[in-house]
């Protein structure tokens, strides 16, 4: 589904990703962990197509196509979804209008008929309830005045509506209380299918206790320095990142 090969990328002349290689197959959940500033959000931004990043080497193949050549909206229509670490407030843009427009763009891209307002509301109603979102939520401007937790829930709600093939969750767990974490994790797990994949960026094992990864990778200073199964996350929680770094230095 996704193949990242030797990806080098930076911004404003600063090299941040220094050769990331990662393969994600359909049905898999991968977790990326790593210290602050190691490049996790940069990786997700490059995958989603944010402007301003310079890819200096490497390539990304998504469903057989070169991802980096696609405009952000094309990637989204082809099923790439980024749950932002810091979702943006967009005053004046109504949530219903926004999400209906987004969904219909995706549907149009796949040759499906566009949904009208009533069909759209019918579709989102249950998904809202499952994420325990308040009724008035869709009437408000996108993320405006939302609490940190509400913003994160909104990301997962959008994901549930758009049903992406590849979901990248950038620290969706941070800022969530324990109940919200359960709700959000359940939301993520509901979207798990044999034909899609998830890339979960997190600092904490506690999310991975609910969203159980098939693989855990450690990103340090722009490189994946270790990969393992779900038990690697536990080990990191107990021993921190220094352990891996020093081990690496020893072997190097």
């Amino acid at each position: 589904m996704l193949e990242i090969r030797n990806l080098h990328a930076g911004i404003d002349g600063k090299q941040i990703l220094k050769g990331v290689t990662l393969t994600i197959n359909p049905g898999e959940v991968h977790a990326i962990m790593g210290p602050n500033g190691s490049g996790k959000s940069t990786l997700s931004a490059v995958l989603a197509g944010r402007d301003g990043y310079e890819v200096t080497a490497g390539e990304v193949i998504y469903q057989g196509k070169s991802l980096l050549e696609m405009a952000p909206e094309e990637r989204a229509r082809e099923g790439v979804f980024l749950a932002f670490q810091y979702p943006v407030e967009i005053p004046g843009v109504n949530s219903t209008y926004f999400l209906k427009a987004a969904l219909n763009e995706v549907r149009k891209h796949h040759g499906l008929v566009e949904l009208d307002a009533i069909e759209f509301l019918a579709l989102v109603k249950d998904k809202m309830k499952a994420l325990e979102l308040r009724e008035d939520f869709l009437k408000r401007p996108v993320n405006e005045g939302f609490s940190g937790g509400e913003k994160k829930k909104n990301e997962i709600f959008q994901m549930a509506v758009l049903e992406p093939k590849l979901a990248i969750l950038d620290e969706t767990d941070s800022g969530l209380d324990i109940d919200a974490l359960k709700v959000v994790s359940a939301g993520v797990n509901r979207l798990r299918r044999a034909d899609n994949a998830q890339l979960v960026i997190t600092h904490y094992q506690r999310l991975l206790a609910y969203v159980i990864p098939d693989f855990v990778h450690v990103l340090c200073d722009g490189r994946i320095v270790r990969s393992g199964g779900k038990e690697l996350a536990l080990e990191l929680e107990q021993r921190g990142y220094d352990w891996i770094l020093s081990e690496r230095n020893h072997t190097a």
Partner: peptide
Amino acid sequence: LDEDAIFYLRSRGIGL
């Protein structure tokens, strides 16, 4: 125009 907001919208499939 807020570039972050534009990117957010595009990342959901809405054209530039």
